[in-house]
Design a protein around this nucleic acid. Structure first.
Lengths: 225, 225
DNA sequence: CCAAAAGTGTTCCGTCTACACCCATGG
DNA sequence: CCATGGGTGTAGACGGAACACTTTTGG
């Protein structure tokens, strides 16, 4: 270990995860009440401190794994938040990460274990520190990319109906979409494949289940929804 | 000072500035040879460590002011870079900031003082650490926003010709643009105002000089180029 | 007089939007 | 038999892309 930068200050660095899920045709966020001081009892994103021998992405993956028991989650950095007094405890710089998870894969017992809940995006409470800002930035980022990149499938199970897919878009974009136009665009993308399976849960008639074929997408990565 | 987080590690945090300028109808970057170890003599972005009582944006502004003598520069965070071994010296997390400056405002004497140069984007050398990645991310970010937000004017003097404006876009987007279509779009935006002034430097015939009227823009912030 | 940059409209094509009715089934 | 969500096509508007010639003037 060398001492090149010995004269400079070191700072606490944390990661905070904005975990999106899709349930009951609604976009939801996984948040909980803080179990430590400062801010004990306030609604908060789930986060953790970055370790000395851990990259930012590894830290985010670790925190996300702690919280969800899941690996290989879709995750993207939002940005760093660095106001001096953003954290009421001490000076902490935090890097926000946005994650999209399939609620089906999530083990509900973890809700209790970590004291977290799925809360509808439309009914978010005031969060600890600058976490509301982080959520806003994450939503902006999602909106920016969701129509041109195949992110949305991360929020859905392997097989999904077109109505579900549409609701994901409506949830993220915060506006309703015309059903026929939406389906027309889906049809253009061959990598969104209709399967033989049929979902009878949400409709009496039954809805065709679709699948996102990643290999096919990679051959012609043209995405527009 | 409390000790809430005493058990967690602290980490060096720096900011690195990707400084874009526009000169000779080319998009350029302000980079220099490192004057310290490790990496002495390598091409590098200009950066600095974040101080204990300084926000990330303040740090970026300070570093940018050191380098340019300018305040009120357009600046945007790109993202945080946090690989464990990204810096060959010690573990340093760096937050990249992208800045757009008007080269006219820049005092050339600073080039020598800080040992930096304006280098054409198309001829960037290999840079220190992960700085090339930072530049790539910054360019992507610029491309994403430049057509829907009035960023480009930060690269130009108060008065500019439409050809200059077009060259800025071509430089950022990395492709040629049709002159008539471009001017048609400019005409739609009333806040890009034609002035009585005429530029006779770059053409014999003379080109009309335009100005970006920020107040008018804020009244109807519809931007599309 | 000629080289060099400024300036100017129209047509075509493709894309996006708006819009309403029938179908299948479980209860 | 009816309530519920699934599924389908067309026409018109709009916006983006392609495209070439005239003007001015300094040297």
């Amino acid at each position: 270990m060398t001492d090149y930068y010995i004269e400079h200050p070191k700072i606490f660095v944390s990661v905070d995860c904005i975990v999106f899920g899709f349930e009951e045709n609604k976009l939801k966020l996984l948040i909980g009440k803080r179990k430590m001081d400062p801010g004990r009892g306030e609604w908060s994103l789930y986060g953790g401190f970055v370790r000395q021998n851990e990259s930012l992405t590894d830290a985010a993956k670790r925190v996300l794994y702690e919280l969800t028991g899941l690996n290989d989650i879709y995750m993207q950095q939002v940005r760093a938040f660095g106001d001096v007094n953003r954290d009421p405890g001490e000076r902490v710089i935090s890097v926000a990460y946005c994650a999209l998870i399939n609620v089906q894969d999530y083990d509900d017992r973890l809700l209790d274990k970590y004291g977290v809940e799925w809360v509808e995006m439309n009914h978010l409470p005031k969060l600890y520190s600058d976490h509301n800002q982080m959520v806003d930035s994450a939503v902006k980022l999602l909106r920016l990319h969701v129509s041109s990149k195949p992110l949305s499938f991360n929020l859905l199970p392997e097989l999904f109906t077109l109505t579900q897919l549409q609701k994901v878009y409506e949830g993220i974009l915060g506006q309703e979409i015309d059903k026929r136009n939406f389906r027309k665009r889906v049809k253009m993308m061959d990598f969104i494949e209709k399967t033989d399976a049929i979902d009878k849960v949400t409709s009496k008639r039954g809805a065709a289940l679709y699948r996102f074929n990643e290999k096919a997408y990679l051959e012609d990565p043209t995405f527009k929804l």
